[in-house]
């Protein structure tokens, strides 16, 4: 489904991605982990086509999105759903209008049909009674749930999550992970997460990929990760300040 081949990206003197290659299996929940500032979100932006690599290919169902025109990219993006780090909700629109936005843009549904779909999605994330509120009236966790409802509105087959639980309390974090698991249809929808919340992602992911110093240093099931002998992987999993990963 997603194949990333030797992606390289440099900003002035800093080489952020240094030949990143990996594959994401269709219908899986795959999580990219790594330290803050490792380039995870940047890599995610490349997958969505918001940034272009200096070198490398990004294949979505065999089509290389690198160098595509915006119109070509938009054809592929119609199958995407994206949950941004802080929800990236439109603050001039109500919750209901935020979720309705992709439906209004890409379907020919009537106002009533759109409203029905919005209700379904808001019910799915437990926010049916908050449709009339504006993003500024919501808590961080609620904003992420609205973001998820909006990401799922068009019934995408590929959903990207950028740090879906960052800045949330443990209970809300658990609720978000449960939502991710509940909305995922195994074998049909592919979920690609970017996170550094080891405990949570190990519990829900089918596969985990670790990005370190601009390269993929490990990929496998959560179990593979737990038994990985690489001291960098082990230090990251344990969250220990002592080890080969130097603290900035």
């Amino acid at each position: 489904m997603i194949q990333v081949d030797n992606i390289q990206k440099r900003f002035a003197e800093q080489e952020v991605l240094r030949g990143v290659s990996f594959q994401v299996r269709q219908g899986s929940i795959t999580t990219l982990i790594g330290r803050s500032g490792a380039g995870k979100s940047l890599l995610l932006r490349h997958l969505i086509g918001l940034d272009q690599p200096d070198i490398g290919k990004i294949l979505i169902d065999g089509k290389d999105i690198v160098g595509m025109t915006t119109s070509e990219l938009n054809t592929i993006r119609r199958r995407f759903g994206v949950l941004f780090q802080d929800g990236a909700l439109f603050d001039s629109m109500s919750v209901r209008d935020n979720v309705a936005f992709p439906l209004k843009e890409h379907t020919k549904l009537s106002e009533n049909e759109i409203l029905d779909k919005v209700r379904q999605k808001l019910e799915l994330v437990g926010l049916l009674s908050h449709g009339g509120k504006y993003p500024s009236e919501l808590s961080g966790g609620m904003r992420k749930r609205v973001g998820l409802a909006r990401a799922l509105a068009l019934g995408p087959d590929l959903v990207f999550f950028d740090e879906p639980t960052s800045g949330l309390d443990p209970i809300t974090r658990g609720a978000i992970y449960r939502l991710i698991e509940n909305t995922h249809i195994d074998g049909e929808i592919t979920y690609f997460l970017v996170s550094h919340d080891i405990t949570g992602v190990m519990a829900i992911s089918d596969e985990v990929i670790m990005l370190h110093q601009g390269k993929i240093i490990a990929q496998g099931t959560p179990e593979d990760f737990r038994t990985n002998p690489d001291p960098v992987v082990q230090q990251f999993l344990l969250g220990s300040p002592d080890g080969p990963i130097a603290i900035d």
Binding site: R77, F80, A88, P102
Partner: peptide, 17 residues
């Protein structure tokens, strides 16, 4: 402010220019 809060990225990601 939309640029800085990723709202413009969100518009792009939803296949809208």
């Amino acid at each position: 402010s939309m640029r800085n809060t990723q709202q413009i990225d969100a518009i792009s990601s939803m296949a809208v220019a």
